[in-house]
Design a binder for these strands. Structure first.
Lengths: 311, 311
DNA sequence: GCGGTCGATGAAATTACTTTTCAAGCGTGA
DNA sequence: TCACGCTTGAAAAGTAATTTCATCGACCGC
């Protein structure tokens, strides 16, 4: 593990510094005059194409520069490294830095003629931003209240339409896993019909990005009127839905473009909120949640083909 | 753009993928389950301290991880590098990138007694990481092929169970919006029944995190046998499902804790992949997709309560 | 101009590191 | 319990890096 501190050769240069990472080009220029011709060739090659040289062995680089291995090693020493091996590592690092610096953050909208590589990068970037925004904007007090209500709920109904319905189903799947009684409703009529049954001690959750989806507001209102605790997960805390929600969890809204419907970012945001709700509830009902979680995991085991899988 | 040709003749690896620079952490997590214990130790060490490991020789790293040189080399291979030497270079590059990027990203597991503030922060952080990992590890070539298949598909069937089913539904909702014919199947029997109808020109997509969910593999196999183009979205590209998939899109795997089932990160990852697929398809069918998108938006307008709505 | 000295240089020897091989160990399922 | 197969590290084999050393050529004094 110790580094080789072999006799520092003739090294009269002022290079007591640890091997430089990015200052390599500068060092080459500084030291060039003191170098012999062959060494200059090596140094120059290395400085002009770090990435390419990093892929080469001593022999390879010697060949490419038309010199010998010994010369390459000597040059490495002169540049401040213990040997070529270390110069090579520094070269790889430098190349990575250059590559990273060269690729500026992608913030532009996704365009029709973007390459798939760009699409992947931009989508990931935007969804990450969306998560960060959501986390920052989430009102923990409201979340706390919502979690408390859920943890003690006799029955939980979730209303959502379209993409929001999927989020609702996700939440319901999770809640069921920890032994709570939850239902997701997609059909507005059935949702209202069921909402009539809700009463104090029950919890109704409405998920709507716009905060104005009547098909979702209506059942929440009914549940609210019947005394259930109501929670709204929406991007518009000032929307119509606010009137009937005891607790409001705000999701973030990213700008949407033609190709990127708002559904995408709202979904990401909603899912984070839903996950937070779930974890919060699981924490508060840990005594029953933990065994329920492992039980549901066990129950699924036979659904997988048996394979060698040590873990 | 110049590559070293020296390793071309060897090529015993079925992995034409060039060793990834930044996707290393993601790769470690994705492949961790398939690794043996000692290899996991090595992979973990390497992923958690690239800079430190880059300074070590095989022997040094073997010592540090309490394993042997052979194991280190084996791990390097598994991660997609020709040998340790190249892994080391990648490590140096990664360290440089990290140093430049700055963000160290501390991620502790979510604990039972974490406050909700912590829960929100940790969840957001983990899901962001998951997105970044997925984007880094996604094989764009495979994605390209999958998009091409979808864009020209006569009919698209999506198979998924549980949380993966929701992802499938999300994809289907989006595809329907741009005028494609898509169905999501949750019932395994119906899925197989429908899969029998598939033929050349149709596309079947299976979504399973484990890659071993028989209820999902079976319909994909049937569709595959009937000549449909098959796509697998899975966290285990080496799973059973690979045999019946023309194109494999790999999702990333975050470590799961008791409170945070794998379903959470796999869902995030799957959704990103699905979004990429969708955008890709929308780009390629822009002529028809754009009007379809605005049409579906218009159609929903009356479902919202009329309100002053600036946007 | 000639011989000597000295630095530069690469070939070859040496050493350090990497990779491969192989047999022992260990868990698993019959 | 045994046999099988996978995991694993020790050591052999191989490869790359470093050092040594002899050669070469240039410069300089004689």
């Amino acid at each position: 593990m110790k580094e080789t501190f072999k006799d520092v050769p003739v090294e009269t240069r002022p290079a007591p510094a640890p091997p430089a990472p990015a200052a390599l080009a500068a060092k080459v220029r500084t030291l060039a005059p003191t170098m012999t011709r062959s060494m200059q060739r090596v140094a120059e090659t290395v400085a002009s194409d770090p990435a390419g040289c990093a892929a080469l062995t001593v022999t390879g680089l010697a060949e490419r520069t038309g010199t010998s291995e010994a010369t390459v090693v000597r040059t490495s020493r002169l540049l401040g490294y213990p040997g070529y091996r270390d110069l090579r590592l520094a070269l790889a690092a430098l190349a990575a830095q250059q590559a990273a610096g060269g690729a500026p953050a992608v913030t532009a909208d996704i365009a029709v003629d973007d390459s798939l590589v760009d699409v992947v990068a931009k989508l990931a970037q935007e969804e990450q931003q969306c998560l960060a925004d959501t986390a920052a904007a989430l009102d923990v007090t409201q979340l706390e209240a919502a979690v408390a209500a859920l943890a003690g709920a006799r029955r939980i109904d979730v209303y959502g339409i379209g993409a929001s319905n999927l989020v609702g189903q996700d939440l319901v799947q999770k809640l069921l896993r920890i032994g709570l009684i939850a239902h997701a409703h997609a059909d507005p009529h059935l949702a209202v019909t069921n909402a009539v049954q809700m009463r104090t001690g029950d919890v109704a959750i409405a998920i709507t990005h716009s905060g104005r989806t009547t098909d979702v507001i209506e059942p929440l209102r009914v549940a609210f009127d019947h005394g259930a605790t109501t929670i709204a997960i929406t991007g518009r805390p000032d929307g119509d839905i606010a009137s009937y929600a005891d607790h409001i969890l705000t999701t973030s809204t990213a700008r949407e473009s033609e190709l990127r419907p708002a559904a995408m970012s709202s979904r990401t945001s909603q899912l984070l909120v839903v996950d937070c709700l779930f974890i919060g509830v699981a924490q508060r009902t840990y005594e029953t949640a933990a065994p329920a979680l492992s039980a549901s995991y066990e129950a699924l085991a036979h659904r997988h083909s048996p394979r060698n899988n040590q873990r």
